[in-house]
């Protein structure tokens, strides 16, 4: 991302939001959709963006592993579930939540090392599809193992994040915009996590090695970067990202089996943002979050509802047709 792209985005995003607003206003004027008001529109967008951060959190885990090893890690969703289950289990055993968080992080690092030892190391240099199949195996194993350890009941994960509705921007809009404080805090945590990851990747020795491995496995090997260590680190980081995502999603939906399936929600986010880009995962998540909320709230009622369930996939499909590398997918550098 250079300054030019940032400038383009800074200009085009408000334009697109405004254009979509006028579009819906026109639809309402023509009588195709029931109603349209600007405050409600902004409220929907804002809540959509906050929802989008949650998608980004899951997508982030995929991007990390895909970048470093070229594997689409199907098991990321089950890592989220496993992390959330472990965290709840530890809290139920009486640990205060910060301690439980640290302990779970340690467990996730352990899982990462085990995955590298048991699954990835024997399969090194196999075609990617075989590694992908292996991650499906990890998915089912983690899914079952987590529930064996901690039980399969729906659990409440509460680490004391307030869930009250709050009103913001009361001065601009009459009555202000209604948002959930939980969503705001989740978004802030997400932003913090991304900032930490960005610094880690950009300025540390290990971060540099991770990016080197992502660029060229062989060259990385040739300068003495040990792939095995790097993979264990990447899976650990992905595990900790899964933990944060698990806390947020678990706090929202309750910790249960279906948590593992939010991985499927991350798929369109990845296609939109590009599999290899961390900013892409964030922005893809935001676009899909906002987009599906707008579609659901305005157009949804007119054509029967439940747009939310398929909107993201439709958007992803459009992207696959016109821009298969996604918005921020790694540009293939080609010199003539």
């Amino acid at each position: 991302m250079n300054l030019r792209t940032i400038a383009i985005w800074a200009v085009s995003v408000p334009l697109v939001i405004a254009a979509l607003g006028f579009f819906h206003q026109a639809l309402a004027a023509a009588g195709w959709i029931a109603f349209f008001t600007w405050p409600f529109y902004f409220e929907v967008i804002l809540n959509g963006l906050l929802q989008g951060v949650m998608y980004s959190l899951v997508a982030l885990g995929f991007v990390l592993i895909f970048k470093a090893s070229g594997i689409f890690n199907f098991a990321q969703g089950s890592l989220v579930l496993f992390a959330a289950l472990t965290m709840v289990g530890l809290i139920e055993m009486g640990l205060p939540w910060p301690l439980a968080f640290v302990a779970t992080a340690v467990v996730m690092v352990g899982v990462a090392i085990a995955v590298e030892r048991v699954v990835l190391r024997p399969l090194v240099n196999q075609p990617h599809i075989i590694l992908f199949m292996a991650t499906i195996g990890i998915f089912y194993f983690m899914d079952g193992f987590g529930q064996t350890l901690w039980g399969s009941d729906v659990k409440v994960l509460d680490i004391g994040i307030p869930k009250d509705p709050i009103f913001i921007l009361g001065g601009v809009f009459e009555g202000g915009l209604l948002v959930q404080s939980f969503d705001v805090i989740a978004a802030l945590c997400g932003a913090l996590l991304v900032a930490v990851l960005a610094v880690f990747f950009q300025y540390t020795r290990i971060g540099r090695a991770l990016r080197a491995v992502a660029d060229d496995h062989q060259a990385a090997l040739s300068v003495g970067i040990p792939l095995k260590t790097i993979w264990a680190i990447v899976w650990s980081v992905a595990g900790i990202v899964a933990l944060v995502a698990g806390i947020m999603w678990g706090g929202k939906l309750g910790v249960q089996f279906t948590l593992a399936l939010i991985a499927l929600k991350a798929l369109p986010v990845l296609i939109l943002g590009g599999f290899t880009s961390i900013p892409g995962a964030i922005i893809g998540g935001l676009i899909i979050g906002a987009g599906e909320q707008v579609a659901e709230n305005f157009v949804g009622a007119a054509i029967g509802g439940a747009i939310q369930d398929w909107f993201a996939y439709m958007l992803a499909m459009v992207f696959l047709l016109f821009r298969p590398q996604g918005l921020f997918g790694e540009k293939i550098i080609e010199r003539v």
Binding site: R208, R211, A212, A214, D215, D216, Q218, A219, A220, S222, V223, G224, E330, I333
Partner: peptide, 13 residues
């Protein structure tokens, strides 16, 4: 240390 054929620099670094 080997310098591989075809350079193999890390393109995005």
């Amino acid at each position: 240390i080997q310098v591989m054929e075809g350079r193999h620099c890390f393109e995005h670094l």
